[in-house]
Amino acid sequence: MAPPFSFLRRQWPALALLIASLAGGARAQQAPSQGTEVAPGFVAATQQWLDDAVARSQSASALPLRMEVSVGALDSRLRLAPCGHVEPYVPVGLRLWGRTRLGLRCTDGSVRWNVFLPVTVKAWGPAWVLRDNVVAGTVLTAADAVEAEADWAADPSPVVADPGQWVGQTASRSLAAGQPLRQSMVKPAQVFPAGAQVRVVAQGAGFEVSADAQALTPGVVGQPVRLRMDSGRMTTGVVQDGRTVRLAM
């Protein structure tokens, strides 16, 4: 469980006014005192809690990411009952990545309330960014993208940081210049259609044999394809290139 903000006991009702200006959610039953100066320490403590939580979540990662955490704003109409102990937590099913929420719950007050504070976590790191617009179905080459820094957390799909994972792949949809390449944006390129004649190669210890066959399914490099040999026998191999399929021995 997240560590509580113990200092909050000393800063109510200033805290209530600050939460009213920061947070959005259901209305509380009791309004705090008016005219009290808000406590800037709460903003700093929330930011520090988030920074620490994000740092802990990234400590086991080998990715060279530069994290940025910003606290959003809640509904300014919100009024909350006084509370002696406000506890931050990450809601179940959410993580501190991209646009997300931080929960704030009162655990010591006449009214137990729970609100959600919008936060944004950016993760800046190396990425391959498209130079120009790309039409769906285009086979990508090394000249299509340039290495630059991008926010990995801006989209749920992971960034493709290794050129070997996107060069020679096909754009799965139309892409815009300036977009960092992500896994959902590319798919393996088809190198021959179903019905194509291919060369089937089988290799063993000290020997290699080949024969002709007809592809029964489209061929994608590195993916299995169904084949009909000249003898009529059905088999499956792995596509090596636009003409060759390799059988496992």
Rank of each mutant, 00 (worst) to 15 (best):
M1W: 07
A2L: 08
A2P: 10
P3C: 01
P4C: 01
F5Q: 05
S6T: 10
F7L: 14
P13E: 12
A14G: 01
A14I: 03
A14V: 02
A16H: 03
L17V: 11
L17C: 08
I19W: 04
G24C: 05
A26C: 03
R27T: 09
S33T: 13
E37Q: 11
V38D: 06
V38C: 06
A39Q: 10
V43I: 14
V43R: 08
Q48D: 08
W49V: 04
D51L: 02
D52I: 01
D52H: 00
A53R: 15
A53L: 02
A53S: 10
A55Q: 12
S57G: 11
S61N: 06
S61R: 15
A62C: 09
P64Y: 04
V69R: 15
S70W: 05
G72F: 01
D75Y: 01
D75G: 05
R77C: 00
L80I: 07
A81W: 07
C83A: 14
C83R: 03
G84S: 10
H85Q: 07
Y89E: 15
Y89I: 13
G93H: 14
L94M: 07
W97H: 15
R99S: 03
R99H: 05
C106P: 07
D108G: 02
G109E: 00
S110T: 13
V111H: 05
V111I: 13
W113Q: 15
W113D: 13
F116A: 12
L117D: 05
V119M: 05
T120G: 07
A123W: 00
W124H: 15
W124I: 13
A127K: 09
W128K: 05
L130K: 14
L130N: 11
V134G: 05
V134T: 12
V139E: 08
T141F: 03
A143Y: 00
A143P: 01
V146K: 13
A148G: 03
A148E: 10
A150M: 08
D151F: 13
W152S: 10
W152A: 10
A153P: 07
A154M: 09
P158I: 04
A161S: 10
V167N: 02
Q169F: 04
T170A: 14
A171N: 11
S172W: 00
S174A: 10
Q179F: 04
Q179N: 13
P180H: 12
L181Y: 04
L181A: 01
R182F: 08
K187D: 06
P188A: 05
A189W: 07
A189Q: 11
Q190N: 04
Q190R: 15
A194T: 02
G195T: 01
V198A: 08
Q203V: 14
G204T: 06
A205I: 06
F207E: 12
V209N: 00
S210E: 12
A211D: 02
D212W: 08
A213I: 06
Q214T: 11
L216G: 02
T217Q: 08
P218S: 05
V220D: 00
V220Q: 11
V221A: 10
G222N: 04
G222Q: 07
G222K: 11
Q223K: 07
R226T: 11
L227I: 11
R228P: 09
R228F: 00
M229P: 03
D230F: 10
G232S: 13
R233L: 09
M234N: 09
V239C: 06
D241P: 14
D241K: 15
V245S: 08
V245P: 01
L247G: 05
L247W: 06
A248I: 09
M249L: 14
